[in-house]
Design a protein around this nucleic acid. Structure first.
Lengths: 220, 220
DNA sequence: TGTACATCAGTGAACGCGCGTTCACTGATGTAC
DNA sequence: TGTACATCAGTGAACGCGCGTTCACTGATGTAC
């Protein structure tokens, strides 16, 4: 059994501390950080807390990370990876209709924010500089690429002269999704909670796509 | 000269400390907090820092506020007041066309986020519970009311059977605006900066309104 | 199979630091006479 | 106009606390023989 295989096994089962050595402390620390971020926000937790949550001395953290920010960056990167996979899967899953596929992608966005709030905040609310973390930048770029490609293939159905750049198209959808998450899917001020976020996002995307001529005016 | 009038004068001129008494420490602390929030986020500053920025001992803060959170809440409340005024003004200013007025409101949203980043973050990114601060709740409700009324009067132009609830309408616009601010008007991951936020928001709102039938398909 | 050894992940004690909060105080300001 | 006094905003010293970071160490694990 290689050391890698052992780590992977530990990662999956969430193995607990067994004696003096932890087993897979690195991932346990990331997980702890993500839980704390979920509870108190990206700037609301301390390195010492993360160590304690993982059942370990603060000093142990330095075996794996340079400090608190690096821990958040790792969480964010894992988030982007999950996110990109999810979006890609949702898009492919929605075939054969490009439109249905696109709408599935929107729903997947919201589902991701719901299911992985810690990752989501590490990704979008931590204020990390992408320049400082090349790997994180790469993961973020890949995730954005998925969205842009989805928008791109959908906009083939729009007459070329009325077609917005697909990067703009996907930016609109991304912004709308993010805004719905931030304002209406959390305990935030704007959230007077009149509509469920899913309904809000779906109807918003519907109206937007109609505006692009992708849904006939009378449809729905 | 009443004490109130003196305070108001101090507030306007940003009067500096003059001897043992400050003049208008309460507002100076709020201003300091807003600057710190702008620089380091709502959870990234300490009460002691705010006191220092205002040129005062940490203990002095307790003459005016119960603690750090109360300070943020006051900043958020002032933000909602400015915000509501700005939106209301932008909407009225845009007459006679209801459409133009609505679009002006969208631009005003972005302008507010740009000009008052500290307030903006205190309002939307601080995670304050509105229930804990009734006055804040009131100010937030008023601000939301302005947006909803704008959406309401604009949707009069839509046939009743195709008209979405105006609360949903305004929620869409709010979410889109907020998403653009968060993702593209800051140093955030999503911000690959291909388009200026203003253009992104304006085009997004345009497509959305076309989807509602408020702009003819061929227009623009 | 057993033993000796190298590796290195995590320990725990230590440090200096800035925080939040309290308290008796001080001195600037406004007012009564 | 001047003086005595009340008010109360801000001081500064003090406290206990948890933080980040370092360091020599310890002991669990894997491996060579």
């Amino acid at each position: 059994m290689t050391s890698t295989a052992k780590f992977a096994a530990g990662q999956i089962s969430g193995m607990s501390k067994r004696g003096y050595h932890h087993g897979n402390l690195r991932q346990a620390l990331v997980d702890a950080a993500l839980i704390l971020i979920e509870q108190k926000g990206p700037t609301g937790f301390t390195l010492a807390e993360a160590a304690k949550t993982a059942g370990v001395t603060p000093a142990a953290v330095y075996r794996h990370f340079g400090g608190r920010e690096e821990l958040i960056a790792e969480g964010a990167q894992q988030g982007y990876d999950i996110f990109a996979d999810l979006m890609e899967y949702a898009y492919r899953d929605g075939k054969p209709s490009a439109l249905a596929a696109f709408e599935a992608t929107g729903r997947a966005y919201l589902a991701f924010a719901r299911k992985y709030p810690g990752h989501y905040q590490a990704m979008f609310e931590s204020g990390l500089s992408l320049n400082a973390y090349p790997d994180l930048n790469l993961a973020a770029t890949r995730a954005q690429g998925v969205l842009t490609r989805a928008a791109d293939s959908l906009s083939q159905h729009i007459p070329a002269d009325k077609r917005p750049p697909s990067a703009m198209f996907s930016a609109h959808i991304w912004a709308l999704s993010h805004g719905v998450v931030e304002l209406f899917a959390r305990g935030n001020p704007g959230a007077k909670g009149q509509f469920p976020p899913e309904e809000l996002l779906e109807s918003g995307i519907g109206i937007y796509l109609r505006g692009l001529g992708l849904i006939p005016p009378d449809d729905h």
